[in-house]
Amino acid sequence: MPPFEKSMEMIPFKQRKCLASRKDEGFSIRSKFPNKLPVIVERYIREKHLPLMDKSKFLVPFEFTIGQFISLLRSKIDLDSSQALYLLVSENHMTCLTASMGEVYSQYSDQDGFLYMTYASQDMFG
């Protein structure tokens, strides 16, 4: 991957696109896929141990649980069972693993129509 593309991945999605563009994209996704939720997942800015994912946008079914989504992310990041992965919603909220993505989306979705999540290892707490 060229250095420019790698550096663009480190810029948060909200800073790469203006609000109007994000709203249009979120509305378009929701109208094309009414049974799915648009989710943006990015690595915590100070994370040093976990790799970047090859994509940050996900379409997730309403009934998916947070636990199922974390399992999906673990496979995308290719973590082994001994590595910790924490998922924060809207940058500073942790949710129950049994909560559905629909419940989390209705509570924490952004005004642009996306649900923003951040992943990190345990080092973010200390």
Score class of each variant (00 low, 15 high):
Arg46Met: 08
Ile77Asp: 03
Thr98Lys: 12
Tyr44Phe: 14
Val104Met: 01
Pro34Glu: 13
Met124Val: 15
Phe69Arg: 01
Ser100Lys: 03
Arg16Cys: 09
Ser21Gln: 14
Met117Tyr: 08
Ser21Pro: 02
Pro61His: 05
Cys96Pro: 04
Lys32Thr: 07
Ala120Ser: 15
Ile29Asn: 05
Ser31Leu: 10
Met101Ser: 09
Asp54Ile: 04
Met53Val: 06
Val60Met: 01
Met1Trp: 05
Leu59Glu: 12
Asn35Ala: 11
Leu97Tyr: 04
Leu72Asn: 04
Lys36Asp: 12
Gly67Ile: 04
Leu72Glu: 05
Lys23Ala: 09
Met101Pro: 03
Gln68Ser: 09
Pro34Trp: 06
Leu115Asn: 07
Leu115Ala: 07
Ala99Cys: 12
Asp78Gly: 03
Ser100Val: 02
Lys36Pro: 03
Pro34Ser: 12
Gln68Asp: 06
Gln107Met: 10
Leu73Ala: 10
Lys76Asp: 07
Arg22Lys: 14
Met10Leu: 15
Pro2Met: 10
Phe114Ser: 02
Met124Ser: 03
Lys17Tyr: 15
Gln83Glu: 09
Ile70Trp: 01
Cys96Ser: 15
Ile70Thr: 03
Phe114Pro: 06
Ile66Gly: 00
Leu73Tyr: 06
Leu87Arg: 07
Leu73Arg: 04
Leu19Asn: 10
Asp54Pro: 09
Ser56Cys: 12
Glu47Arg: 00
Ala20Arg: 12
Ser90Ala: 13
Ser28Asn: 14
Leu19Cys: 07
Pro61Ala: 08
His49Gly: 02
Arg43His: 01
Lys55Tyr: 06
Lys6Ala: 15
Ala99Ile: 05
Leu79Ser: 07
Gln111Glu: 14
Glu9Asp: 11
Lys23Glu: 15
Lys55Val: 05
Lys14Cys: 05
Met124Arg: 09
Phe33Tyr: 15
Met94His: 10
Glu42Tyr: 03
Val60Trp: 00
Pro38His: 11
Ile29Ser: 07
Pro51Met: 06
Pro51Asp: 10
Arg22Glu: 10
Ser21Tyr: 11
Met101Ile: 14
Leu115Pro: 04
Asp112Lys: 01
Ser100Gly: 05
Asp110Trp: 01
